[in-house]
Amino acid sequence: TEDEKKIQELLKRANGDVSKAEKLAQSQGNEELARRLREYANK
């Protein structure tokens, strides 16, 4: 999905570090994506 692409892109930029990727999403003002990242990471 589009969200998964965004999540994978963020994870790439954060070198696979979920908490960093989450902070990136939040810094972009994207709380929804940050929440999805957390769920994605907890799979």
Rank of each mutant, 00 (worst) to 15 (best):
I7T: 02
R13I: 13
G29I: 02
K12C: 15
D17A: 02
R35E: 06
N15M: 07
Y40C: 06
E39C: 13
L24P: 01
K43L: 12
I7W: 05
A25D: 01
N15H: 11
Q26H: 10
A41L: 13
G16F: 11
E4K: 07
L33W: 05
E2T: 10
K12R: 15
A14T: 12
N15L: 06
Q8P: 02
L37M: 06
L11E: 00
K23H: 08
S27D: 14
Y40K: 03
E32R: 08
L33C: 06
L10I: 08
A41G: 07
D3T: 12
K20D: 04
D3N: 09
R36P: 00
N30Q: 10
Y40G: 02
E39D: 08
I7H: 01
A41N: 06
G16T: 01
S19A: 13
Y40P: 00
K20Q: 10
V18H: 05
Q26S: 07
E9Y: 05
N42L: 12
A14F: 15
A21W: 02
Q28G: 06
N30I: 03
L11D: 00
L37S: 00
V18L: 09
V18Y: 14
L24H: 04
K5E: 11
Q28Y: 10
Q26T: 08
L37D: 00
E31S: 10
Q26K: 12
E32N: 07
E2Y: 13
E31M: 13
V18F: 14
N15Q: 09
K43P: 06
S19E: 13
K6G: 07
G29R: 03
A34N: 01
S19W: 13
A41T: 07
K20I: 14
R36Y: 07
D3R: 06
E4L: 14
A41C: 14
S27G: 08
T1N: 12
S19K: 13
Q26A: 10
Q26W: 12
L10E: 01
A34T: 03
K43Y: 11
N30G: 15
K23I: 09
N15G: 14
R38W: 05
Q26F: 12
I7L: 13
E31G: 07
S27K: 10
G29D: 04
G16R: 02
A21F: 02
R38V: 06
N15K: 10
R38I: 05
E32M: 08
Q8A: 11
A41K: 08
N15D: 09
E31H: 14
G16A: 02
Q28S: 10
N30P: 01
N15E: 07
T1F: 13
L10F: 12
V18W: 15
E4G: 06
T1K: 11
R38A: 05
R36Q: 11
L10W: 08
E39K: 04
I7S: 02
E9S: 06
A41W: 14
N42E: 11
E32F: 07
K5N: 08
A34W: 05
E22V: 15
A21E: 01
G16I: 02
I7Y: 05
A21P: 00
Q28T: 10
